[in-house]
Design a protein around this nucleic acid. Structure first.
Lengths: 337, 337
DNA sequence: ATTAGCACTGAGGACCACGGAGTGCCAGGA
DNA sequence: TCCTGGCACTCCGTGGTCCTCAGTGCTAAT
């Protein structure tokens, strides 16, 4: 059905269209790619490809344009991830080294990825749910207030103010602090609820109300509300593209963090590159965009995702190469921290 | 030179142009505003206004459009800040209450402001330089590592990892922690350097290296590097406008935090609304935008700025009203925290 | 199975005519 | 002196027509 040459034609159509942003005709293909056949033959192949839904014509007397299905085949079988150039690798290193804390690592990463791909980059903060507790700190802020700071092994810090937890003595706080740390330091966040379950019982009854408030806030901030933070960069790169949907819709979708989180989260194959093309994206405003995403993490534990959003008409091999490379570097940097 | 009626004409031109986004002619003005004179008279006034540079014609047979100078006069003398409607005030309250920590307050504020003005909103985090130390926490992370967490009275938390500070004993850390807090808790950040100057001398010589590293990182993160954080929302609203400069340039400018910080920082009159119109903005990409900004803070101490970026053709009274109202509310919320 | 030749199609650009909004100016009137 | 009605003029935007041209599908020959 789809012999070798038809696939070659499809590949050529995708590549040319990505380069020129104009429907590509049979003659142009015959000229620029060494397919060894005449335009007429290519035309016949194109008819077959069109019947199978891989390419389409904007209008009768125009060249062909890949469909989402065509891009999908291209990504799956006709292309391979393009490794970065030496210059690009060097740029990554010089860009990422010297970051001083997690915020800065993430901020630099997202800008870097946007610059490399000339598209919109998305970086997710290391997930709380998959990391473990490094240390819990309790700080009295006044007579009735307490600040809780939780530090995770991925460098992330969550802080919350606890209000009206009864009156607070320095020593009671210190007791609770050391008890808490003994109970949960080193544990994955998922195991925290079980581990603190019987803690109030061990506390001096006088201070039990405080302990209870602290624990409930702790659980709430770590487990129930596992809000995942996301950072964007490179939205200016969208202005250069013209979308089927309006640019406004795309920008709106990008501002809805929950949408992005879901999108990144849907990557099927963990620790691999995922590409979602056009209509494959459930979100209305992103129907004319593609999303290339990857996991990053330390070792083989995945912490979060990074990704790139661009027009379906994008340089998939190059973008995939950049995303993969940046994901690896971030993993390394985080491991070294 | 500019009598009462000419000013009224200018006001009408600005208002109509803002509404319709089309050059406004003498007849339309005579119809829609009760100026009490004929189109011919209005035309004569327009000629005068044009000679003085307040309005201009895109081409000979078109209506008039305000110039930057025209908007400036409008803002300074012809309009007053429009207070918010009851519904809007209620929206603000329900939007901002229930925020659980500083990050969330800021995030909600910026979205709120973007929604109210239908433009791009900018909110700056409370400045570190103007707040004071609430508490310093030191947490050993391992044999050779230490995490420092500084909590300010504005709810902001800075954390840094200190690496290779010599070997660390629990008790030495505790000593240093309490010494540090005694020395600087409650101090404005600006006074911290002086206050810690002689601290190393008081430390047991064995642990002096650790103390020195901690202090240098402390100073670096609080004073020297007073990087100010900024959050944006509502960029999708830009897509609806058509700029003289390309949309891309505007988006690029908005991504450069340093530019925004400088822009907000340049407000002349502290604790008042500032409006910068078109060419008044030094940045290339923002020549066709206007920026309305205000200070917010607790009491009469200004902590940081919020603002809105939109086309020069914007509803100044409404935008100014929204910015001022939101600034006040954020101040209140922060004070209550 | 491939190719050359050919008639056909539809988009986009150039050209033109025209209607209309808006102007500037002038002369007459309060 | 200031305002107003009238009028000629300018120029943009629109819609129609024509033409070009890239690219197609089909057919007959290799």
């Amino acid at each position: 059905m789809l012999d070798e040459r038809k696939l070659a034609v499809l590949r050529a159509v995708v590549e040319d269209f990505v380069n020129t942003n104009e429907p590509v005709g049979s003659k142009a293909l015959a000229d620029r790619h060494r397919l060894g056949v005449s335009p007429a033959t290519i035309r016949n192949d194109m008819v077959a490809l069109e019947e199978d839904g891989y390419i389409t014509q904007p209008h009768t007397s125009a060249g062909r344009v890949p469909t989402d299905k065509g891009y999908r085949l291209f990504v799956d079988r006709l292309s391979s991830v393009k490794p970065l150039s030496v210059a690009e690798r060097r740029a990554i290193e010089s860009f990422l080294t010297g970051a001083v804390d997690l915020d800065e690592i993430i901020a630099r990463t997202v800008r870097l990825l946007a610059q490399l791909t000339r598209q919109v980059a998305i970086v997710q903060y290391p997930s709380l749910t998959r990391s473990s507790v490094q240390h819990v700190e309790l700080v009295p802020l006044g007579a009735m207030r307490l600040m809780m700071v939780v530090i995770t092994n991925t460098g992330r810090v969550e802080q919350r103010v606890i209000d009206g937890a009864g009156e607070i003595s320095e020593s009671a706080v210190a007791d609770l602090r050391s008890m808490l740390n003994r109970a949960i330091a080193g544990l994955p966040l998922g195991d925290v609820p079980d581990a603190v379950d019987d803690l109030p019982a061990q506390v001096d009854p006088e201070h039990r109300p405080m302990a209870v408030s602290v624990l409930s806030i702790l659980l709430e901030s770590l487990v129930e509300r596992h809000e995942e933070k996301i950072v964007l960069a490179g939205t200016a790169n969208l202005a250069a593209v013209d979308f089927a949907a309006s640019l406004r819709d795309v920008l709106e979708a990008l501002e809805e963090n929950m949408v992005l989180i879901r999108l990144l989260g849907e990557a099927k194959d963990p620790s691999m590159l995922t590409v979602r093309i056009g209509e494959e994206n459930f979100h209305e405003g992103l129907r004319s965009t593609s999303i290339v995403s990857a996991d990053y993490g330390v070792g083989n534990q995945s912490l979060a995702k990074i990704g790139v959003v661009g027009p379906t008409r994008m340089d998939y091999p190059g973008t995939m190469g950049a995303v993969r490379a940046v994901a690896r570097y971030v993993g390394q940097i985080l491991a070294g921290q």
